[in-house]
Design a protein around this nucleic acid. Sequence first.
RNA 1: CGGGGUAUGGCGCAGCUUGGUAGCGCGUCCGCUUUGGGAGCGGAAGGCCGCAGGUUCGAAUCCUGUUACCCCGACCA
Length: 586
Amino acid sequence: MAQRMSNLFLRTLRENPSDAELPGHQLLVRAGYVRRAAPGIYTWLPLGLKVLRKVEAIVREEMEAIGGQELSFPALLPREPYEATGRWEEYGPNLFRLADRKGVDMLLGPTHEEMFTVTVKDMFSSYKELPTILFQIQTKYRDEARPRAGLLRGREFIMKDSYSFDHTPEGLEENYLKHRGAYVKIFDRLGFEYVAVHADSGAMGGSASEEFLAVSPHGEDTFVRSPGGFAANVEAVVVPQAEPIEVTAGAAHVEDTPDTPTIDTLVAALNAKHPRTDGREWAAADTLKNVLVMLVHPDGTREPLAIGVPGDREVDAKRLEAQVSPADVEAFEEKDFATFPMLAKGYIGPGVLAESNSSGIRYLLDPSIAEGSAWVTGADEPGKHVIDLVHGRDFTADGTIQAAQIKEGDPAPDGSGPLTLARGIEMGHIFQLGTKYAEALGLKVLDENGKLVTVTMGSYGIGVSRAVAAIAESNLDELGLIWPRHIAPFDVHVVATGKDASVYEQAEKVVADLEAQGLDVLYDDRPKVSPGVKFKDAELIGVPTIVVLGRGLADGVVEVKDRRSGDKRDVPLAELTQAVVTDVRG
RNA sequence: CGGGGUAUGGCGCAGCUUGGUAGCGCGUCCGCUUUGGGAGCGGAAGGCCGCAGGUUCGAAUCCUGUUACCCCGACCA
């Protein structure tokens, strides 16, 4: 049955809600698709639910096409499996915890690795039952410190998560590639620009890992692309180790550089008081900045770490976190400086850093810092810097770390040219998890030789509700949403205008004919609503084809509008159904 | 957790400086008119002004405290 606007549970808003920021999210609220119930928690109204179901259907189809079997775990989970893997503790405040009436700890599932693993363990005991792909499309809960951007980062959200189970690395690889193929098909169908990037597998462990990012300036992830087609999340970019260069600098010498605690002030002072002899000016890139952070390991122990990067770069917090995971990174505070009196804040240099020096603090360098290169850096005394300090000659570090900020124009790891930076929204993540959870929960099967082997797993996620938001963000104009056809809540939006009863009678026939062709029709039958309101609502709601019955009927024609292009054409009544079917089905 | 901002009817906002009957637009309901670009006129319903204390004859408004929400950052498969 066609959905009549007179009977649709919908209220469109003329003005943007004050708590919505992103254009797509504003429109989803204004057009009556979703409504905020609590911070980061949204109600799916009828229109929104129809869209969500369509996205789910696409994901489900492609998962089934690679042999995935759907199941559904509870959202409300027992503590025990999460205790066994350590995540009851590790997840920290992001985990929604609750207790039942007997005081037994429960949680709302933030992700379901444990449940999949435990369930497969309960049911399988032989390699003959592998490989298996299981998936669910399910509501997840994470008590994010700061939910934002509507559906893009909520505390309740819908995710497809699947897991593959194999007893050999080859099997895992194969399932990983199957998922990769399915993901390409899914994202090709969803209707936003996306890019698959190399990712950091981070705290989840595992090796091969790729993220599918929706390209968007509103994204929270930064990724790089090279002219040669290399693409990676900045967290996963590996800066190559610079080749040693010939030492050309003279002997290192300490100079007075009063009041130069920052790179900017240092560079200015150098150019004023200690100009270079080769004719060019000092630049931030000539300086070596030594940044101190405090690592907090999962067992609670704290370890200071010094990172040396060229002065024209920051330490990228996300890259650093990815490198030191599972440890957390905290700021190096005044009280920490107090315990290391040899550290002169603002003038810290390699002279006291490294495990073999007075501070004993582990000192890691950015790999772009070549052996033989000369630097201006802190002399470990307030108001003093050392010039021409040469890496390998005058100082050494304990190793290197991939933590420096990546900049637009940096050379690409594949050697194809300069990197470009862009932002993206993480829509999917696939990675080879390996045995982390199987090990922790004892998921083993008997192999061909009758020996117990730990099952190796792959983990694959897609943000389903986030996908709805991403589609909205990339399919809109100043008038409203513009859904891709296979995502739209309806195939066609029929608008009857005017007060003449014959228009509505004709519209009923048109609607019936379109439905007879199998189309899903939204019919604006509201009798006392002015045409302008109906047009605005239709544009806001964003069904891709809009059929308008009104004044043209006198000449036997009906207007067919393409929402995306704005093109309008008059079609004779007799040809209308066929014309619309052609538009909708391509 | 740091910084900034806001809490007044379903939505968007004004009023607060200088205390004195709680207002506007949109939406909703009734009537008449109107019907190709968010209609007009007339009528109506709907608000413990976030919460708690305090000052005052009197507090949306002043004072103290508190909570919530939004934005930026930190954080975040």
